[in-house]
Design a protein around this nucleic acid. Structure first.
Lengths: 268, 268
DNA sequence: CCGTGTGAACGTGTTCACAGCC
DNA sequence: GGCTGTGAACACGTTCACACGG
């Protein structure tokens, strides 16, 4: 998750597994929906279905939080909402800055998911002077010259980077220097940060590529029966034939573009 | 990943681990950058640094693809770019539809990450008649009545959902019925899909909540020495005092918002 | 000699299945 | 009886460390 040293050998200080933490927001969302419908209690089975996980996993997850829940009955919805909120730190207010108010930044600024649940857009920041003062989603954009001031005055510890990839690292550096210790990165770059700073990334093209991988596999699967116990038939037995250069730097005059195709993999 | 039955017991058909697949796009991006700078070869160490992983992991990952790479030298950049592209299915063209052209959908439509790397925005679809025909990022928006026709005519197998949460499931159902088998979901909902359909989700508020969790933990760590062996001091000794209802369905008149705020998790 | 490729050790996460309690 | 809570088994992922080959 974090780029710079996610080490943490085994601090063990009441450690909730990372995988569990990642699911708590899911449970919380499902519970909130139930709460709005005034449902008083849920079983692990029901809640798991609503959250899209299986019930054993859910119970295990909750067991790390403590023994909320009543045997033979289920979980008290309101109580659980509170406990998970507290565990996630949502009972306090988190001011957030969004840097880079282009299409994406504007979309994020207007996104309801911010306003709810303890997150508050403290400021929108952009480097373009033409944007300064312009209200986006009701919040006036501030110039990036004032970044440090904004961060420290509002006590912001969470920053969202929605800038082009080219400037993401320097924006990140400035955020960190100003005191931000958690970063949500939408720019398609690997950010390096010092110890103690968390980075999470959201990357559209990575997600698409993962989908493409599975999609391609589905297409290749068509012929074999789905229950095939040992159906190992590879589409191409000798993959090297198709490849640009079977191996060996030499042979093709030692140069690059080994064969005709040459992917031409240039991103935007 | 996929919501409805990610079962797949152990198909084993030349299985590249899911974790590895998720990193291939990262390697590919780093390699592409090297390729642009005409770097002929990289060592696992260098490439790993560029991709933000450690070298052992990278070598293990590559070993699932085959034995590309030369001992004592490293990997041929062009060759690897090609191999990874092929493995990910990026040597073919993937038409993609984006459904829901609000702020976010528009941002996605304009995102460079689409155009590059074999993905092509085949259509933008929105339910608002006022949007129909309006060009967004150079592509005219089409009305959702034509969704099925668009999907089948263009042979689209990947769909992106950027609608409000309330309609995401029905959009999903229509996409799947029309032949889409991979979905990237930006709406904050759990989608249920039949077997064989992959869903990946990108969820801003979940990411923020995970950051908040770690952020909170950092703050709490301040007082105790970081090696604190048994420093278990809970902030509130008796959590129940603050909690909405220690247990028992009655007590709070079935009210909602335990801590003033009242979630109101409905997104934009 | 250097860096890849990989078995083996280790750690994390998931699932099973059932004891324990309401 | 029903459902939670959890040890134990299992599967997956990561790291180590070194043999192997250019």
């Amino acid at each position: 998750m974090a780029t710079g040293r996610t080490h943490r050998p085994a601090t063990r200080s009441r450690g909730i597994p990372e995988a569990t933490v990642a699911r708590l927001p899911l449970y919380l969302r499902a519970l909130t929906a139930l709460s709005e419908r005034s449902v008083p209690t849920v079983s692990s089975e029901e809640l798991a279905a609503a959250a899209g996980v299986n019930s054993a996993k859910l119970r295990k997850d909750f067991s790390y939080l403590g023994s909320y829940g009543t045997r033979g009955v289920g979980y008290d919805v309101e109580y659980l909402v509170y406990q998970i909120s507290r565990e996630l730190g949502l009972t306090q207010d988190w001011p957030v800055v969004i840097v880079g108010i282009g299409n994406l930044g504007a979309a994020l600024a207007g996104y309801g998911g911010f306003a709810s649940r303890g997150f508050r857009v403290a400021a929108l920041i952009d480097a373009d002077p033409a944007m300064t003062g312009k209200p986006v989603a009701g919040i006036p954009v501030q110039h990036s010259d004032d970044l440090e001031k904004i961060i420290s005055e509002d006590g912001v510890s969470i920053g969202v980077i929605a800038t082009p990839a080219g400037v993401a690292q320097q924006v990140c550096d400035r955020l960190v220097a100003a005191g931000v210790t958690s970063i949500l990165n939408f720019a398609p770059t690997v950010l390096s940060v010092p110890d103690g700073v968390d980075v999470r990334k959201v990357d559209l093209s990575i997600e698409l590529q993962i989908l493409a991988f599975h999609e391609q596999r589905k297409a290749g699967e068509e012929s074999s029966a789905e229950e095939g116990p040992e159906a190992l038939a590879e589409p191409e037995p000798a993959a090297a034939v198709v490849a640009p250069a079977p191996r060996g730097t030499t042979g093709t005059t030692g140069r690059k573009g080994p064969d005709g195709d040459v992917p031409a993999v240039m991103p935007a």
